[in-house]
Each structure stands twice: as structure tokens, then as C-alpha cells.
Write a protein that binds this DNA or RNA. Structure first.
Lengths: 183, 183
DNA sequence: CCTGAATGAGACAATTGCGTCTCACTCGAT
DNA sequence: ATCGAGTGAGACGCAATTGTCTCATTCAGG
């Protein structure tokens, strides 16, 4: 009977990512609940978006923890990160594309912290000689988000198999499209 | 005096990409014109989105033509494509993320054609041994769009220098983050 | 079998945005 | 200087959405 808050938010993210102008009613239907119930759990559209942001921060934080970014070689850590972040891709894709959140009040501090951790991973990889230095760590961080998002949509639209997603994202991010000669 | 249609659409794309719920008034202001004038040129919000889609198709088509995807090695062709597509990144980023366009009526045929051409480029690269085959051409196509979009936003938000954008996108797409041993 | 919390459906007013119109103004061309 | 097309500002009614409320129903636990 009790509504699964996380499930509602996930459904909302999936819908809003592809149709940001969806009404509260459409969001409720997508989550399989009534509009009244949706309003009981989230005061309004704004509150829903905030909750979505909060969920994304929590889940990505958890993914970062689970990936143990400081351990082992940077490329392996990145692979773990992609694997851990993939289930959260839907929510992340929405949050990455919709910056409407950040108006007036500055960017949520939580994001700054998460960005910094991912940024640090790429920087470590560069310092240890595993990652190239002609691509800035900031750009690699952005590219990470972009590929996570693109992957989530590609799976959602049936253009990429879910099973391949983690490998596709991680390998493209690490090795690119070009066929490598060595190894 | 005459309103620059292309300029209005570009401004609209830039705004809508980051704030899809923007009102017609906000869009008009962002383009530096009045709401009445906006309505004179585009019958309504739908017409505006359609025009945006049409502009994106035209510009990307032009970019694909200019990049001469069939000539030379696939990696070089991809580099040319990124260079040609980069100025259109803002519009593409919006269209890539907002699939609200395609409801009821199928996906615009123009996109199918463009997708096919990019897809063919990656396939050619794979067949000629320049691109790895463990990543599907469909995924590489999606990744191309995703990185173009991520790049556009990163530049817009000041996280990446515009001058580096083409290089950053093309090199990441081609070679990934990992430092290559050979070469 | 009760009881109560939670839900879905619907009604309701208030708000918001949309599309159209009018009117005064600006600017370029004649 | 005059004319006319194009524009911005604002008003207006209309449709859609929002947020709140009520009420009947459902379901879990005692």
C-alpha cells in the first residue's frame, strides 16, 4: 500500500528525461499512482524535482563509494565506477541534462562534491600515466556523464542491449573507437 | 529590422536545452525579441520545435556533406565530421535530448537518414579495420551525439574552452581516455 | 471480524501560459 | 518628409495545469 518513493522517482526521471514538459498527472500515471497520491508525497513539481536531485546524489554517492575510486589502477577504478553507476543512469541522465534546477540558489553542494571525486579519479589517472593529458580532467568528467546519459537513452530506445551497456560505456571512455594496435 | 530566424532558433535551442519548460515569453526574451514577434514567425510552441528540428536536420546534413564521410580513412572522416558538427552542437544537443518531438507521428525521416550516414561511417571504419568491432556502430553513433551534446554544455557552462572542443570530442571518441602505448 | 491508514477518483478554484489582437513606435526606402 | 513594413508592449479570453479538498474504497494488522 505504501508507495515506493524510490520507484516513483525513478519513473518520474525516466519520463521527464524524454519529455520534460510532462504534467504532474502524466508523471503520476507513469509511476502507476494517482495524482493525489503523488501530491501527498511531493508537495509540488518543484519538490519532486528536488527529491529527484537528492536521490541522484545519494545513489551516485553510493556508486562512488562502492567503486572504491582510490584503489588500484585508475582505468580499473573507472570500470568499476561505470558498472556501479549504470543502474542509476536513468536518474543521472535526467539530472545531467536538466540544469533548470540550479537557478538563484547555487548548484547543489552535493554535486560539487561528486564532481570533485570523479574529477580526482581522472586526474589521478593522468598523474599515474594511465590517462592521456591532452584531454582535461574536467572534459573527461563531462564526457563520463554524457556517455552515461547517452547509454541510458540508447538502452531505453532499444538501440543498445542492456547487457552491453557497462562494457560499451567503459570501453569507449577508456579506449575510444579506434582499434588499438598493441595489446 | 527583419528578425534573423536562424538566430532566434539558435537562442531557443540554447535555452530549451537547459530549461525545457521555458515559456514562450522567456524564449522570446532570450532571443532578444518580443513575444508577439516570436508568434509572428512561429505559429506556436509546436511550430517552433518543428522549425528547430528542421534547422538541426539542415545544419547536420550540411555538416555531413562538408565532412565528406566517404573519403579517406574513417578516423579522419570522423575528425572532419566533429569539426563540421561542432558549430551546430547547441541545436543538436537540444534535439538529441528532447525526444518529445516524436509522438504519434513517427520519427522524422530526416533523422533516420542522418543516423544512417553516421552509422555507415562507423561501420566502414570497422570493416576497414580502423575501428574496434566490440563496440557496435549503433552505440558509437549514440556516443557521438552524446559527446557533442556534453561538449556543447560544457562549453556553455565554461567548463571546457571552446577552442579545445573539437579536439576534445574527436580525440576522446577516437582514442578514449587511456594513454596509448604505440604511436 | 474490526479499525485505521493510505490510496484513487473526481471536483474545485486559482494560477499560469498560450494565442490573438490592437496600438504606438522605429527604421529603412522612396 | 512621407510612407509602410516590422516590431514591442500590453490587454484579452481561453485552455491547461496546479494544488487542495472530499469521499468511497482497499488492505494490513490487531
Amino acid at each position: 500500500m505504501a508507495v515506493d518513493r524510490s520507484h516513483v522517482l525513478t519513473a518520474a526521471a525516466a519520463l521527464l528525461a524524454r519529455r520534460p514538459t510532462s504534467s504532474m498527472d502524466e508523471i503520476a500515471r507513469a509511476a502507476g499512482i494517482g495524482r493525489a497520491t503523488l501530491h501527498r508525497h511531493f508537495a509540488g513539481r518543484d519538490a519532486l524535482i528536488r527529491a529527484l536531485e537528492q536521490l541522484g546524489i545519494e545513489q551516485l554517492t553510493h556508486a562512488l563509494d562502492a567503486a572504491r575510486l582510490d584503489e588500484g589502477a585508475a582505468p580499473d577504478a573507472l570500470r568499476r565506477l561505470v558498472a556501479e553507476a549504470e543502474p542509476v543512469a536513468g536518474v543521472l541522465a535526467f539530472l545531467f541534462t536538466e540544469n533548470q534546477l540550479f537557478e538563484g540558489e547555487g548548484i547543489n553542494e552535493g554535486w560539487t562534491r561528486l564532481d570533485a571525486r570523479i574529477h580526482a579519479l581522472f586526474r589521478r589517472g593522468q598523474e599515474e600515466g594511465d590517462f592521456r593529458i591532452d584531454l582535461g580532467a574536467a572534459w573527461l568528467t563531462e564526457a563520463f556523464y554524457g556517455l552515461i546519459g547517452a547509454g541510458a537513452w540508447a538502452v531505453h530506445d532499444g538501440r543498445v542491449a542492456r547487457n552491453d551497456l557497462t562494457h560499451s560505456i567503459a570501453e569507449l571512455l577508456l579506449g575510444g573507437a579506434r582499434r588499438s594496435m598493441e595489446k
